[in-house]
């Protein structure tokens, strides 16, 4: 147990070290001299050599790369993600200010996806081949294939503009959360539905399900007690993964609904080449994802008694 924990921490720190290195290295992907490019784009005119030099000195860009990276990482580990180029505010506080909005969206969207997907997937699998199954499969296919920003606009068009049910944009109230959560949650739900269905189909074919039936167990219990519990293991993975990468969707959905949050912060920072913010958000979201992954692995042990013995998953 201790050993597997150690191994896990070890691989985790290797991954995070690589992630931070790449995250910090983004700056140097900038065409030409980063300082020059950043200043030019900020002011819409070519900066003087002195201005570039001052910028480089201020942000420590003259040091060798590894030194810069080292000091940034040391600070980051202590919770200091540097200072924004534009707003001269600490990145940490900017990020923390936006975190609740995105977290709220992520939780709501995950809830929507699970509540929609699990029943739909189970019913679909139990009634395999019937019109119920086909309808839900088509719905899931459409859901997976729809660009979520487009779905957002359709929802705005119908719910806000035509029916006037919900506000178009902003954040803070429950009403302002409904459409973004639906937009983000539907796409996630579609994937989960397909997975629940596939997983249930496989489990329903398993011998132990026949064993349960042969005992005389009610069909409803066969499905929900014997099959679903086993089918949940991959489902938990995917839900965890989706929660961990919800930032992907949030970037777009927050733009659609003009909603403040980490996504908006990131997109604005990317356009403004405010690299400390970009690095901060990427590092934080990646870290969040890696941690969620580990939590999912822990959840496995509770769901599937066999995992414990298998130890670390490959």
């Amino acid at each position: 147990m201790l050993r597997s924990l150690l191994a896990r921490l070890g691989s985790l720190s290797v991954v995070m070290a690589g992630v931070s290195l790449i995250t910090y290295g983004f700056v140097f992907l900038t065409p030409g001299d980063p300082a020059h490019t950043i200043l030019r784009e900020q002011r819409q005119s070519s900066p003087s050599a002195a201005e570039v030099a001052a910028f480089r000195a201020e942000h420590g860009l003259d040091d060798p790369f590894l030194v810069q990276y080292g000091s940034w990482l040391t600070d980051a580990v202590q919770g200091d993600l540097g200072t924004s180029y534009l707003q001269s505010e600490p990145v940490t506080s900017l990020v923390l200010a936006q975190l609740p909005n995105t977290l709220e969206l992520a939780l709501a969207a995950t809830a929507v996806s699970v509540l929609l997907a699990v029943p739909m997937g189970v019913v679909s699998a139990v009634h395999r081949g019937t019109w119920i199954d086909r309808t839900s499969q088509i719905a899931a296919l459409v859901g997976v294939s729809m660009p979520n920003f487009w779905l957002g606009y359709l929802l705005i068009l119908v719910c806000s503009l035509w029916l006037g049910l919900t506000p178009v944009s902003g954040a803070g109230t429950l009403g302002q959360l409904v459409l973004p959560a639906l937009t983000l949650g539907t796409g996630m739900a579609a994937i989960v539905t397909r997975l629940v269905r596939a997983s249930m189909l496989e489990v329903l074919d398993a011998d132990y399900v026949d064993t349960a039936r042969s005992k005389g167990v009610r069909e409803r219990l066969v499905v929900y007690k014997h099959a679903l519990r086993n089918a949940l293991v991959p489902v938990v993975t995917i839900v965890g993964l989706q929660f961990g990468t919800v930032i992907n969707g949030a970037v777009v959905v927050e733009a659609v609904f003009q909603r403040p949050g980490l996504g908006t912060l990131l997109v604005d920072a990317v356009f403004a080449r405010d690299y400390p913010i970009v690095q901060g958000v990427v590092l934080l979201t990646t870290f969040a994802f890696v941690v969620t992954n580990q939590l999912v692995d822990l959840a496995y042990v509770a769901l599937d008694p066999r995992i414990e013995r298998r130890g670390e998953r490959p």
Partner: peptide, 24 residues
């Protein structure tokens, strides 16, 4: 495989967004 793990640790769209943004 460590490299693969690192790539997979990044949220895909965010990483693409940042790369595209930085490159212009």
């Amino acid at each position: 495989m460590r490299l693969v793990d690192i790539q997979l640790a990044f949220p895909g769209l965010v990483l693409a967004l940042v790369i595209a943004g930085v490159l212009g």
